[in-house]
Design a protein around this nucleic acid. Structure first.
Lengths: 193, 193
DNA sequence: GTCTATATAGGGATAGAC
DNA sequence: GTCTATCCCTATATAGAC
């Protein structure tokens, strides 16, 4: 989908997105001005408008990165889902999530701004991981206990992820991944009595 | 600390805070204007300045509500903390958190804004639950696996909480509380092999 | 593709009347 | 305690030169 002229890896557009990702995550979307982004890019505010139609457009582009994430995982299991299948899937996703943790933290810290985006322009079929999680959790065919367990498992991973850059910085990613997988296992392999 | 003239329960100030809590949670702090709050209060923007020195002051006041929350829990166990002690404490906190879930969701969705507050005015000894969690999680005396488990447990509760108003709305609070307690138990009662 | 203006609006905050 | 009117600043966005 992203088709630059020569389709090189690191275009200006991508670099803007990387800067924005960092600033939006550390300061929040609203508190980050285009001037600030431009300063880091070492050109002026107006130049950004050559690459993006609006500030919201930058947010949307970043949001799209999450869309791409795990698209195949979502397609692999549509409606039906046993607890075991979920455990396996989630555990498989952890490494990818750790590798992309900047992206997840960005989303966690800018939910409000991103939701505002959805309200206006839900053009075409959306369906990012969050929507997908939400849909499964609201599937009333599954017993309540199962759905709550699932929500806890997702929350647990997010919790571990959120601290991975700060207080868990000294723990290597693969070790952290192992710990998170075991935690998810504890949550999902022990059904109600 | 909140000393109104007659110290009645529901003062205008408190009502402003309630409105702000709702709007800040649903739209985010930055996207909510004082004009919007004033409209709901059925008076004008400027009137708010009689009760609060600034918009940030409103945010701070709401933040203080979290400060009060579980202050005693924090004092009861300072540094030393076994995994069992933590499990007990966390399970005991769940009901209170559920009762105050609006407050927690507000915090989750406005982390960036609240952090900006901390940076400027860390007047006096702060120490809300989040700070406290963070401190424990960074205590290198505890084994990494334990700390990660703890982070997961906290995340699990937050995960369950976050959906309690939406997809879990049909589940009674006390039942949801029980499920969350069992989930926390699964996470913290099964140490590494 | 990046720049220098400049237009415009919205929101936070103040002064002072009632 | 609440209101009107107003100031001021910042941020988005545009127009058009280089």
């Amino acid at each position: 989908m992203p088709a630059s002229p020569t389709d090189t890896a690191s275009t200006t557009r991508e670099r803007i997105l990387d800067v924005a990702l960092e600033l939006f995550t550390s300061q929040g979307y609203d508190k980050t001005s285009l001037r600030e982004i431009a300063e880091r890019m070492e050109f002026t505010k107006a130049a950004i408008y050559y690459h993006f139609a609006s500030k919201a457009d930058i947010l949307k582009a970043l949001h799209m990165r999450l869309h791409d994430f795990g698209r195949d995982s979502m397609e692999s299991m549509e409606d039906e889902a046993s607890l075991e299948a979920w455990a396996t899937l989630l555990e498989g996703l952890i490494d990818q999530m750790l590798a992309q943790r900047a992206l997840f933290m960005f989303h966690e810290r800018n939910q409000a701004a991103i939701e505002a985006l959805h309200d206006e322009a839900h053009e075409g079929e959306h369906r990012d991981i969050q929507d997908w999680f939400r849909q499964v959790l609201s599937n009333e065919k599954l017993p309540a206990e199962t759905r709550v367990r699932l929500a806890c498992a997702i929350g647990a991973v997010m919790g571990g992820l959120a601290f991975s850059g700060e207080v868990f910085a000294s723990i290597p990613s693969d070790e952290l991944g192992g710990m998170l997988r075991r935690a998810v296992g504890s949550l999902l392999d022990a059904p109600s009595p």
